[in-house]
Nucleic acid binder design. Structure first.
Lengths: 211, 211
DNA sequence: AATATTTACGAACGGTCGGTCGCTTTGTTA
DNA sequence: TAACAAAGCGACCGACCGTTCGTAAATATT
């Protein structure tokens, strides 16, 4: 471990900047975000940021890392306590919506916002976001596949299709929440998937009762 | 009708500017869009834009109008030729995905992009976008309600829920298309809704065969 | 105690932003 | 033909953008 007080201090501010930048990025956009904005919010100087990242783009990529780490920690990890199969897929969906409802990020979902912001802007960041989306969909598809493999779902179910439906319900929730209310919107997102899963599951009773 | 050649010319450039601004807004964002950008793309002067809109915000609101008009013309109107009920709901979904696949807007969907861009930015534009989303969901819910009313769908179906699912599948399509391919993504969005509608319809044979 | 390293800062740079102003051009009207 | 009105342009403004640079302060090394 590093004991150097200078490096420790640098690492600490580095983390604080990333945390703040992630919050602001969900409001102003990953590109709309300005360095002065981030610096002022933390009471540090703008030029000091360049000691940690050589350019704005480098900071933006670091923010993507930060967002992924947060997502893994706050959405995926809690859901992995659920047993494998259809219950774990449901747990991820539920955990994700809980993340939105908790208002952790003022702009709702970093990745959803970023995807729509960069969907027509080629470049390093877009490529990075595309990789993240591929990873995420692979993860969801893997959960669905597992559910079929262990017999929670019949063999005819298309895991990719189920993953797509799950993702769609989640994305739509974070899009509509600020307008139509998070409670009502997330209820729709939950009951839609739950009803669908219970309808196709070989044993619906292992899933929660619909409310 | 106005016969004044000056006003006619103004109206013409006004339309051209809105058209161009709508395209660029889906790429750079409705707020990220710059007036120089729009002016240069049309070979007009930036200051000339202020003859038509007194501020950038006024232009942005006009772009929302333009987007709504395009959406009504290119998505809703063609779908309204389908008979009322579940077939019309399906036609809107199909027409919407066709609009995305045609690549009319380089950034995919103006409204989806704008919603995610402004979901945490209070102001006139956000209010306007919120009203548009409410209108759109009311429209979809109305179609679902109609399908229940005329007996295409059983009485137990929740129209709001069905509208939410339809919207979710559409939004997710435009989000994932640039990354995972429009063809595969829209196929998922189509088959997901079609299978669901056929599963709950009182007479599935009035809907297309699943592919 | 002297030197090296790392963080962080303030000042300044060129460039772009939204917006203003006065003018020319184009077309209408009397 | 003269007076007028609208469209559109070029020059310019202050503000903010990302970025660079020289320097001061804190810490580690010798």
């Amino acid at each position: 471990m590093t004991q150097d007080g200078r490096l420790v201090r640098g690492e600490r501010t580095r983390g604080a900047v990333l945390e703040q930048a992630l919050l602001l990025a969900t409001v102003s956009g990953l590109d709309g975000l300005s360095l002065s904005q981030v610096a002022d919010a933390l009471g540090v100087s703008k030029s000091g940021l360049f000691a940690h990242w050589r350019s704005k783009e480098a900071l933006q990529l670091a923010v993507v890392d930060q967002a992924r780490a947060q997502w893994t920690e706050r959405v995926i990890r809690p859901a992995m306590t659920a047993p494998p199969g259809v219950r774990r897929l449901w747990a991820v969906h539920d955990s994700r919506l809980a993340f939105y409802e908790a208002g952790v990020l003022p702009g709702g979902c970093f990745f959803a916002n970023a995807h729509f912001e960069f969907n027509a802007r080629p470049g390093v960041i877009r490529d990075r976001l595309a990789a993240e989306l591929t990873d995420w969909m692979t993860f969801l598809t893997g959960l669905a596949t597992e559910a079929v493999t262990i017999g929670d779902l019949p063999a005819g179910v298309d895991p990719g299709q189920l993953a797509y439906q799950t993702e769609a319900l989640g994305v739509c929730a974070v899009m509509q929440s600020p307008v139509l209310g998070a409670a009502a919107t997330c209820r729709r997102a939950r009951s839609s998937l739950l009803e669908h899963l219970r309808a196709i599951a070989t044993d619906p009773t292992i899933l929660p009762e619909p409310t």
